[in-house]
Protein backbone atom coordinates (compact mmCIF):
# COMPACT_ATOMS: atom_id res chain seq x y z
CA UNK A 1 0.00 0.00 0.00
CA UNK A 2 1.43 3.35 -1.13
CA UNK A 3 -0.27 5.32 1.59
CA UNK A 4 1.27 3.36 4.43
CA UNK A 5 4.65 4.11 2.95
CA UNK A 6 3.77 7.81 2.60
CA UNK A 7 2.66 8.07 6.19
CA UNK A 8 5.73 6.26 7.51
CA UNK A 9 7.98 8.62 5.54
CA UNK A 10 5.96 11.55 6.86
CA UNK A 11 6.33 10.40 10.46
CA UNK A 12 10.08 10.05 9.99
CA UNK A 13 10.27 13.54 8.46
CA UNK A 14 8.29 14.77 11.45
CA UNK A 15 11.15 13.73 13.71
CA UNK A 16 13.36 16.27 11.96
CA UNK A 17 10.66 18.94 12.23
CA UNK A 18 10.27 18.22 15.92
CA UNK A 19 14.00 18.87 16.25
CA UNK A 20 13.53 22.24 14.51
CA UNK A 21 10.69 22.96 16.89
CA UNK A 22 12.10 21.97 20.29
CA UNK A 23 14.72 24.71 20.19
CA UNK A 24 12.02 27.30 19.52
CA UNK A 25 9.78 25.82 22.17
CA UNK A 26 12.59 25.86 24.73
CA UNK A 27 13.46 29.51 24.10
CA UNK A 28 9.88 30.62 24.23
CA UNK A 29 9.10 28.53 27.28
CA UNK A 30 11.97 29.84 29.37
CA UNK A 31 12.53 33.42 28.29
CA UNK A 32 9.50 34.23 26.12
CA UNK A 33 11.90 34.76 23.25
CA UNK A 34 10.91 33.96 19.69
CA UNK A 35 14.04 33.69 17.64
CA UNK A 36 13.23 34.60 14.04
CA UNK A 37 16.78 33.61 13.07
CA UNK A 38 16.20 30.07 14.35
CA UNK A 39 16.04 28.54 10.86
CA UNK A 40 19.12 30.41 9.73
CA UNK A 41 21.03 29.06 12.72
CA UNK A 42 20.01 25.57 11.63
CA UNK A 43 21.49 26.30 8.22
CA UNK A 44 24.56 27.83 9.85
CA UNK A 45 25.05 24.52 11.65
CA UNK A 46 24.71 22.72 8.32
CA UNK A 47 27.48 24.87 6.86
CA UNK A 48 29.66 24.44 9.95
CA UNK A 49 29.28 20.69 9.48
CA UNK A 50 30.16 21.10 5.81
CA UNK A 51 33.34 22.95 6.72
CA UNK A 52 34.28 20.36 9.34
CA UNK A 53 33.60 17.47 6.98
CA UNK A 54 35.51 18.93 4.05
CA UNK A 55 38.46 20.32 5.99
CA UNK A 56 39.00 17.47 8.45
CA UNK A 57 37.68 14.67 6.29
CA UNK A 58 35.39 13.43 9.05
CA UNK A 59 32.10 11.67 8.43
CA UNK A 60 29.05 13.91 8.86
CA UNK A 61 27.86 12.07 11.96
CA UNK A 62 31.25 12.51 13.64
CA UNK A 63 31.13 16.24 12.80
CA UNK A 64 28.45 16.52 15.49
CA UNK A 65 31.22 16.22 18.08
CA UNK A 66 32.57 19.57 16.90
CA UNK A 67 29.45 21.35 15.64
CA UNK A 68 27.29 20.75 18.72
CA UNK A 69 29.73 22.25 21.27
CA UNK A 70 30.48 25.09 18.87
CA UNK A 71 26.81 26.00 18.50
CA UNK A 72 26.38 25.61 22.27
CA UNK A 73 29.04 28.26 22.84
CA UNK A 74 27.63 30.52 20.09
CA UNK A 75 24.20 30.27 21.70
CA UNK A 76 25.53 31.07 25.16
CA UNK A 77 27.49 34.12 24.03
CA UNK A 78 24.69 35.37 21.80
CA UNK A 79 22.13 35.25 24.59
CA UNK A 80 24.33 36.50 27.37
CA UNK A 81 25.85 39.46 25.59
CA UNK A 82 23.23 40.39 23.01
CA UNK A 83 19.75 38.93 23.32
CA UNK A 84 19.43 39.36 27.11
CA UNK A 85 19.58 43.10 26.48
CA UNK A 86 16.48 42.87 24.28
CA UNK A 87 14.25 41.06 26.78
CA UNK A 88 11.53 43.00 28.55
CA UNK A 89 7.90 43.93 28.29
CA UNK A 90 8.24 45.23 24.74
CA UNK A 91 8.22 42.42 22.16
CA UNK A 92 9.63 44.64 19.43
CA UNK A 93 13.36 44.59 20.35
CA UNK A 94 13.84 40.79 20.47
CA UNK A 95 11.68 40.33 17.40
CA UNK A 96 13.45 42.90 15.28
CA UNK A 97 16.94 42.03 16.50
CA UNK A 98 16.49 38.33 15.70
CA UNK A 99 14.83 39.22 12.40
CA UNK A 100 17.85 41.39 11.58
CA UNK A 101 20.14 38.51 12.55
CA UNK A 102 18.21 36.24 10.21
CA UNK A 103 18.74 38.52 7.20
CA UNK A 104 22.39 39.12 8.15
CA UNK A 105 23.08 35.39 8.51
CA UNK A 106 21.45 34.53 5.19
CA UNK A 107 23.46 37.12 3.34
CA UNK A 108 26.72 36.31 5.08
CA UNK A 109 26.27 32.62 4.23
CA UNK A 110 25.50 33.68 0.68
CA UNK A 111 28.68 35.76 0.47
CA UNK A 112 30.86 33.06 2.00
CA UNK A 113 29.42 29.87 0.51
CA UNK A 114 27.62 31.18 -2.63
CA UNK A 115 24.07 30.23 -3.54
CA UNK A 116 25.12 26.75 -4.68
CA UNK A 117 23.16 23.91 -3.23
CA UNK A 118 25.12 21.60 -0.90
CA UNK A 119 24.61 18.20 0.66
CA UNK A 120 26.54 16.15 3.18
CA UNK A 121 27.05 12.60 2.13
CA UNK A 122 27.11 9.92 4.78
CA UNK A 123 28.36 7.34 2.30
CA UNK A 124 26.63 3.99 2.47
CA UNK A 125 24.21 5.28 5.12
CA UNK A 126 22.61 7.53 2.51
CA UNK A 127 21.02 4.66 0.64
CA UNK A 128 20.84 2.00 3.35
CA UNK A 129 17.32 0.91 4.10
CA UNK A 130 15.42 -1.69 6.07
CA UNK A 131 12.83 -3.64 4.11
CA UNK A 132 9.74 -4.13 6.21
CA UNK A 133 7.56 -5.63 3.52
CA UNK A 134 7.35 -5.63 -0.26
CA UNK A 135 5.83 -2.20 -0.38
CA UNK A 136 7.42 -0.68 2.70
CA UNK A 137 11.08 0.01 3.21
CA UNK A 138 12.45 2.47 5.70
CA UNK A 139 15.63 4.43 5.06
CA UNK A 140 18.22 4.00 7.80
CA UNK A 141 19.15 7.70 7.73
CA UNK A 142 15.57 9.00 8.17
CA UNK A 143 15.15 6.44 10.95
CA UNK A 144 18.28 7.65 12.74
CA UNK A 145 17.01 11.22 12.43
CA UNK A 146 13.60 10.28 13.81
CA UNK A 147 15.01 8.34 16.74
CA UNK A 148 17.34 11.24 17.51
CA UNK A 149 14.37 13.59 17.45
CA UNK A 150 12.44 11.47 19.93
CA UNK A 151 15.55 11.09 22.08
CA UNK A 152 16.09 14.85 22.14
CA UNK A 153 12.50 15.49 23.21
CA UNK A 154 12.80 12.79 25.87
CA UNK A 155 16.14 14.16 27.04
CA UNK A 156 14.84 17.70 27.30
CA UNK A 157 11.76 16.47 29.11
CA UNK A 158 14.05 14.77 31.63
CA UNK A 159 16.26 17.85 31.94
CA UNK A 160 13.25 20.06 32.46
CA UNK A 161 11.36 18.03 35.02
CA UNK A 162 13.95 15.88 36.77
CA UNK A 163 17.08 17.99 37.20
CA UNK A 164 18.07 20.96 39.29
CA UNK A 165 18.87 22.98 36.18
CA UNK A 166 15.44 22.22 34.75
CA UNK A 167 13.82 23.33 38.01
CA UNK A 168 15.75 26.59 37.79
CA UNK A 169 14.62 26.99 34.17
CA UNK A 170 10.98 26.60 35.17
CA UNK A 171 11.30 28.82 38.23
CA UNK A 172 12.95 31.60 36.22
CA UNK A 173 10.29 31.29 33.55
CA UNK A 174 7.62 31.70 36.27
CA UNK A 175 9.05 34.65 38.14
CA UNK A 176 12.42 36.20 37.38
CA UNK A 177 12.74 38.35 40.51
CA UNK A 178 11.88 35.56 42.91
CA UNK A 179 14.23 33.18 41.09
CA UNK A 180 16.95 35.76 41.65
CA UNK A 181 16.14 35.72 45.36
CA UNK A 182 16.90 31.97 45.33
CA UNK A 183 20.37 32.67 43.96
CA UNK A 184 19.61 32.18 40.29
CA UNK A 185 21.65 34.33 37.94
CA UNK A 186 19.04 34.96 35.29
CA UNK A 187 21.34 36.06 32.49
CA UNK A 188 23.38 32.89 32.99
CA UNK A 189 20.24 30.71 33.05
CA UNK A 190 18.89 32.32 29.89
CA UNK A 191 22.26 31.95 28.19
CA UNK A 192 22.33 28.28 29.17
CA UNK A 193 18.82 27.80 27.79
CA UNK A 194 19.85 29.36 24.50
CA UNK A 195 23.03 27.27 24.49
CA UNK A 196 20.99 24.08 24.88
CA UNK A 197 18.54 25.24 22.20
CA UNK A 198 21.50 25.87 19.89
CA UNK A 199 22.95 22.45 20.62
CA UNK A 200 19.64 20.98 19.43
CA UNK A 201 19.78 23.33 16.44
CA UNK A 202 23.24 21.96 15.67
CA UNK A 203 21.99 18.38 15.60
CA UNK A 204 19.03 19.44 13.46
CA UNK A 205 21.35 21.30 11.09
CA UNK A 206 23.69 18.37 10.61
CA UNK A 207 20.80 15.96 10.00
CA UNK A 208 19.16 18.45 7.63
CA UNK A 209 22.38 18.60 5.65
CA UNK A 210 22.54 14.82 5.49
CA UNK A 211 18.90 14.36 4.47
CA UNK A 212 18.42 17.07 1.85
CA UNK A 213 20.13 19.70 -0.24
CA UNK A 214 20.62 23.04 1.45
CA UNK A 215 21.64 26.56 0.49
CA UNK A 216 21.78 29.87 2.38
CA UNK A 217 18.12 30.65 1.71
CA UNK A 218 16.48 27.55 3.20
CA UNK A 219 16.59 28.78 6.81
CA UNK A 220 13.29 30.70 6.95
CA UNK A 221 11.33 27.66 5.77
CA UNK A 222 12.87 25.64 8.63
CA UNK A 223 11.80 28.32 11.09
CA UNK A 224 8.27 28.09 9.71
CA UNK A 225 8.17 24.27 9.99
CA UNK A 226 9.44 24.44 13.55
CA UNK A 227 6.99 27.19 14.42
CA UNK A 228 4.08 25.28 12.90
CA UNK A 229 5.01 22.16 14.84
CA UNK A 230 5.09 24.17 18.08
CA UNK A 231 1.67 25.74 17.48
CA UNK A 232 0.07 22.51 16.24
CA UNK A 233 1.32 20.69 19.32
CA UNK A 234 0.30 23.43 21.73
CA UNK A 235 2.60 25.87 23.50
CA UNK A 236 4.60 24.64 26.44
CA UNK A 237 4.39 20.92 25.83
CA UNK A 238 7.49 19.15 24.51
CA UNK A 239 5.70 15.91 23.66
CA UNK A 240 3.03 18.02 21.98
CA UNK A 241 5.77 19.60 19.90
CA UNK A 242 6.95 16.15 18.81
CA UNK A 243 3.37 15.28 17.85
CA UNK A 244 3.09 18.61 16.01
CA UNK A 245 6.25 17.82 14.06
CA UNK A 246 4.92 14.41 13.10
CA UNK A 247 1.54 15.81 12.02
CA UNK A 248 3.31 18.40 9.89
CA UNK A 249 5.61 15.77 8.40
CA UNK A 250 2.70 13.47 7.53
CA UNK A 251 0.72 16.37 6.05
CA UNK A 252 3.65 17.29 3.83
CA UNK A 253 4.23 13.69 2.77
CA UNK A 254 0.56 13.21 1.92
CA UNK A 255 0.56 16.50 -0.02
CA UNK A 256 3.64 15.45 -1.95
CA UNK A 257 2.00 12.12 -2.75
CA UNK A 258 -0.94 13.94 -4.35
CA UNK A 259 1.26 16.37 -6.28
CA UNK A 260 4.95 17.07 -5.57
CA UNK A 261 4.28 20.81 -5.92
CA UNK A 262 1.86 20.64 -3.01
CA UNK A 263 4.18 19.23 -0.33
CA UNK A 264 4.98 22.45 1.54
CA UNK A 265 1.62 24.01 0.82
CA UNK A 266 -0.27 21.11 2.41
CA UNK A 267 1.77 21.50 5.58
CA UNK A 268 0.97 25.21 5.76
CA UNK A 269 -2.71 24.58 5.12
CA UNK A 270 -2.97 21.92 7.83
CA UNK A 271 -1.30 24.37 10.19
CA UNK A 272 -3.71 27.20 9.32
CA UNK A 273 -6.73 24.91 9.67
CA UNK A 274 -5.58 23.80 13.11
CA UNK A 275 -4.90 27.43 14.02
CA UNK A 276 -8.44 28.39 13.03
CA UNK A 277 -10.23 25.53 14.78
CA UNK A 278 -7.86 24.81 17.68
CA UNK A 279 -5.95 28.05 18.30
CA UNK A 280 -4.34 26.61 21.44
CA UNK A 281 -2.99 23.62 19.56
CA UNK A 282 -3.90 19.97 19.83
CA UNK A 283 -2.14 19.19 23.11
CA UNK A 284 -2.02 22.41 25.15
CA UNK A 285 -0.52 22.33 28.60
CA UNK A 286 -3.38 22.49 31.07
CA UNK A 287 -1.75 25.05 33.36
CA UNK A 288 -1.00 28.36 31.67
Amino acid sequence: MDWVNTIVQGVLLGGLYAMFATGLSLMFGIMRLVNIAHGDFIVLASYLALVVVTSLGLSPLISLVIVVPLMFVIGYVLQRYLLNKTLGDDILPPLLVTFGMSIILQNVLLEVFSADSQKLSAGALDIASITVSDQLSVGVMPLIVFISGVAIVGGLQFLFYKTELGRAFRATSDDQDTARLMGVNNSHIFALAMAIAMAVVAIAGVFLAMRTNFDPTVGPARLLYGFEAVIIGGLGSLWGTLAGGIILGVAQAVGAQIDPGWQIMTGHIVFLVILIFRPRGLFPRSVD
Binding site: E164, A168, R170, A171, S173, D174, T178, A179, M182
Partner: peptide, 15 residues
Amino acid sequence: FPSLSVEENLLMGAY
Protein backbone atom coordinates in the same frame (compact mmCIF):
# COMPACT_ATOMS: atom_id res chain seq x y z
CA PHE B 1 6.64 29.39 41.59
CA PRO B 2 3.30 28.30 40.11
CA SER B 3 4.67 25.60 37.84
CA LEU B 4 6.68 23.97 40.62
CA SER B 5 5.38 21.57 43.25
CA VAL B 6 5.65 22.34 46.95
CA GLU B 7 8.78 20.24 47.27
CA GLU B 8 10.31 21.75 44.14
CA ASN B 9 9.61 25.22 45.51
CA LEU B 10 11.45 24.27 48.69
CA LEU B 11 14.33 22.78 46.74
CA MET B 12 14.64 26.00 44.72
CA GLY B 13 15.39 27.65 48.04
CA ALA B 14 18.52 25.53 48.32
CA TYR B 15 19.77 26.64 44.88
